[in-house]
Computed example of a mutant assay.
Amino acid sequence: MDQLKQSLLEAPIIEKDGYHYFVHPISDGIPMLEPTLLREIVIKIIRKADLENVDKIVTPAAMGIHISTAVSLMTDIPLVVIRKRKYGLDGEVALSQQTGYSENEMYINNVDEGDRVLLLDDVLSTGGTMKAVTEALEYIGAEVVDVCAVIKKVGANELDDTDYQVKTLINVDVVDGEVVIEDEHGDG
Score class of each variant (00 low, 15 high):
residue 65 I to Q: 13
residue 66 H to M: 07
residue 66 H to T: 08
residue 67 I to A: 15
residue 67 I to V: 08
residue 67 I to M: 09
residue 67 I to H: 07
residue 68 S to W: 01
residue 68 S to D: 12
residue 68 S to E: 12
residue 70 A to N: 07
residue 72 S to D: 11
residue 73 L to H: 09
residue 73 L to R: 13
residue 74 M to A: 15
residue 74 M to W: 02
residue 74 M to Q: 14
residue 75 T to A: 04
residue 75 T to N: 11
residue 75 T to C: 14
residue 75 T to H: 10
residue 75 T to R: 03
residue 76 D to Y: 15
residue 77 I to K: 04
residue 77 I to C: 06
residue 77 I to A: 12
residue 78 P to G: 04
residue 78 P to T: 03
residue 80 V to E: 01
residue 80 V to S: 13
residue 81 V to H: 04
residue 81 V to F: 09
residue 82 I to W: 09
residue 84 K to M: 15
residue 84 K to P: 06
residue 84 K to F: 04
residue 85 R to S: 15
residue 85 R to Q: 12
residue 86 K to D: 03
residue 86 K to G: 03
residue 86 K to V: 10
residue 86 K to C: 08
residue 87 Y to K: 10
residue 87 Y to Q: 13
residue 87 Y to P: 11
residue 87 Y to A: 10
residue 88 G to I: 04
residue 89 L to T: 14
residue 89 L to C: 09
residue 90 D to S: 13
residue 90 D to T: 14
residue 92 E to K: 01
residue 93 V to D: 12
residue 93 V to G: 13
residue 93 V to S: 11
residue 93 V to W: 06
residue 94 A to M: 06
residue 94 A to S: 13
residue 95 L to D: 01
residue 96 S to F: 06
residue 96 S to Q: 07
residue 97 Q to I: 08
residue 98 Q to W: 05
residue 98 Q to N: 13
residue 98 Q to T: 04
residue 99 T to C: 09
residue 100 G to S: 06
residue 100 G to W: 13
residue 100 G to M: 13
residue 101 Y to L: 03
residue 103 E to V: 02
residue 103 E to N: 07
residue 104 N to E: 13
residue 105 E to T: 14
residue 105 E to M: 08
residue 105 E to Y: 08
residue 105 E to P: 00
residue 106 M to W: 00
residue 106 M to F: 07
residue 107 Y to T: 06
residue 108 I to W: 11
residue 109 N to K: 09
residue 110 N to G: 10
residue 110 N to V: 09
residue 111 V to I: 12
residue 111 V to Y: 04
residue 113 E to C: 06
residue 114 G to Y: 02
residue 115 D to N: 15
residue 116 R to W: 08
residue 116 R to F: 11
residue 117 V to L: 08
residue 118 L to Q: 14
residue 119 L to I: 05
residue 120 L to Q: 02
residue 120 L to A: 02
residue 120 L to E: 03
residue 121 D to Y: 15
residue 121 D to L: 09
residue 121 D to E: 15
residue 122 D to E: 07
residue 124 L to F: 00
residue 124 L to V: 09
residue 124 L to Q: 02
residue 125 S to D: 12
residue 126 T to P: 01
residue 126 T to D: 00
residue 127 G to T: 15
residue 127 G to C: 06
residue 128 G to Y: 00
residue 129 T to Y: 00
residue 129 T to N: 02
residue 130 M to Y: 11
residue 130 M to F: 15
residue 135 E to W: 04
residue 135 E to Q: 11
residue 135 E to L: 10
residue 135 E to G: 00
residue 137 L to T: 05
residue 138 E to C: 10
residue 138 E to G: 06
residue 138 E to Q: 08
residue 139 Y to E: 15
residue 140 I to F: 05
residue 140 I to W: 04
residue 141 G to M: 13
residue 141 G to S: 07
residue 141 G to A: 13
residue 142 A to G: 11
residue 143 E to D: 12
residue 143 E to G: 07
residue 143 E to S: 14
residue 144 V to C: 05
residue 145 V to T: 06
residue 145 V to G: 04
residue 146 D to W: 01
residue 146 D to Q: 12
residue 149 A to F: 00
residue 150 V to L: 01
residue 153 K to Y: 05
residue 154 V to N: 08
residue 154 V to S: 10
